[in-house]
């Protein structure tokens, strides 16, 4: 019995894409509104956790698999540090925000003072947000997934021992 009731499952399925798009919104707007890679990542990971709790860890493990998530995590971390290293190569030093003000893709300087916010500002910040976002989603979800799976496994073993 690793699924919850039908109502919960249906609602989870309905809510999941909304939470996810909201989390991605938070990631993408990290440099404009409260939020950022980590917060958005935590939200998306929670969305995945919602699926996990509604459908059970076996189902989720079959769907996603912990290996693939690990790879995603590595990729996110790699992108993050690669962006920092690009700062060394294109800018002057490690972690240089080499895109800020370069009027390339994300390189505009916003109007100083209160404004409504443009997406294409902030230099490497949005990119870093995405990198951290990928990493955090994968990381936090792997933690929950693996722990849930292990607890499931142990429960099963305990049941076998007793019965």
């Amino acid at each position: 019995m690793s699924e919850m009731s039908k109502i919960v499952r249906t609602i989870a399925a309905i809510v999941f894409p909304f939470i996810m798009i909201y989390g991605l919104y938070v990631i993408a707007h990290g440099h404009l509104t409260p939020g950022g890679g980590f917060q958005g990542g935590a939200i998306v990971a929670s969305a995945c956790a919602l699926l996990l709790v509604a459908y059970g860890s076996m189902w989720t493990m079959r769907r996603i698999g912990e290996k693939r998530l690990s790879v995603f995590e590595s990729i996110g971390a790699f992108f993050f540090i690669a962006l920092a290293l690009l700062g060394l190569f294109f800018g002057a030093v490690f972690f240089n925000n080499f895109l800020a003000g370069s009027s390339f893709l994300f390189g505009d300087i916003p109007m100083v003072g209160s404004n409504t916010g443009d997406m294409n500002t902030g230099g490497v910040l949005p990119l870093m947000n995405f990198a951290v976002g990928i990493k955090v989603v994968a990381g936090l979800f792997v933690i929950i997934l693996v722990m849930a799976y292990a607890s499931n496994h142990m429960e099963k073993k305990r049941g076998e021992k007793q019965g």
């Binding site: 790879v71 995590e73 590595s74 990729i75 290293l85 490690f94």
Partner: peptide, 13 residues
Amino acid sequence: IAIPLLGAFLTPL
């Protein structure tokens, strides 16, 4: 710092 970190991130791959 960057090289061991990079190595660590790439090790799973």
